[in-house]
């Protein structure tokens, strides 16, 4: 009787487990299998050779990583002070102001990006003439809310008495920031960075819309192979991205907090 009861609750996860295996696990294995095979199904390393022998492909990969890092840095620099001010109690910012920072996420992503392009266009910055500048601005616009939210969540849980203690013990503002505030907000910084870095380098929508297709990111490569039905080499590029993600999550594993997207509700 008792065994039966425990069993009945566990079984609820079965449909979920089946769904995940079918549509998450098996597709990932297919990616790996496709990356190491050719059209006829024979095991080969030719996909690797094709990808890494093209200077263009390596440039794209390097540039994607660079723009991912640059966007993460800019978003953190802009978002960190904003989140800090929002979380400060004596500022009396209500939850409504925080929600205002997040609301752009509810306006369609492509429409929002196109709106940014129209604004730059009206200001005389044309995507076709300044593809790098436009793309960078578009990226910052899009990912800033994703940085502010996890940072804000961490900062509201911050222990303010430690900051006061630091001042009381004679530390100046700079020292207090680096020795108490920054370490306390590290989990927020880590989760903000993971929210920004990977999507920046892999999404091709912003670079396409803002840079008028003059900039190619790693996401563009995958999309191009998808359009041409080149599944095998496309899988290889996806596998490279998977490895970067795995490396990134391995580095941040201990500090990972899933407050990032769900934290507001």
């Amino acid at each position: 009787m008792r065994k039966n009861k425990v069993f009945s609750r566990k079984i609820l996860a079965l449909p979920y487990a089946v769904f995940l295996v079918l549509f998450v696990l098996i597709p990932l294995f297919l990616i790996i299998a496709y990356a190491f095979t050719d059209e006829s199904g024979a095991v080969t390393l030719s996909n690797f050779r094709t990808f890494f022998s093209g200077a263009h492909n390596i440039n794209t990969l390097m540039f994607s990583i660079f723009i991912g890092l640059a966007n993460t840095a800019i978003c953190l620099l802009l978002g960190y002070p904003a989140a800090f001010i929002l979380a400060k109690r004596n500022m009396n910012f209500g939850k409504a102001t925080v929600l205002l920072f997040v609301m752009p996420m509810w306006i369609n992503f492509v429409l929002r990006t196109a709106a940014t392009r129209d604004l730059l266009f009206a200001m005389g910055i044309k995507g076709g003439e300044h593809p790098y500048l436009s793309t960078m601005i578009g990226m910052v616009y899009n990912y800033l809310p994703f940085v502010i939210l996890p940072l804000y969540t961490t900062m509201t849980k911050m222990n303010y008495s430690l900051i006061e203690a630091s001042y009381d013990l004679g530390a100046n503002k700079v020292k207090t920031f680096f020795l108490t505030i920054l370490p306390m907000t590290m989990p927020g910084i880590v989760s903000a960075s993971t929210m920004v870095f990977m999507p920046t380098m892999s999404s091709y929508v912003i670079s396409d819309v803002m840079g008028e297709r003059k900039i190619s990111l790693i996401g563009n490569s995958i999309q191009l192979y998808f359009d041409q039905g080149l599944w095998h080499i496309g899988s290889l590029v996806a596998l490279i991205m998977l490895l970067i993600i795995a490396f990134g999550s391995f580095c941040t594993e201990t500090e990972e907090e899933h407050t990032s997207r769900g934290g507001l509700w």
């Binding site: 549509f23 892999s202 899988s235």
Partner: peptide, 17 residues
Amino acid sequence: IPVMNAEIVTALSLTIL
């Protein structure tokens, strides 16, 4: 996995399936 994964990798893996 889908949380950490790049959306385009998820998309491609499903397409291939």
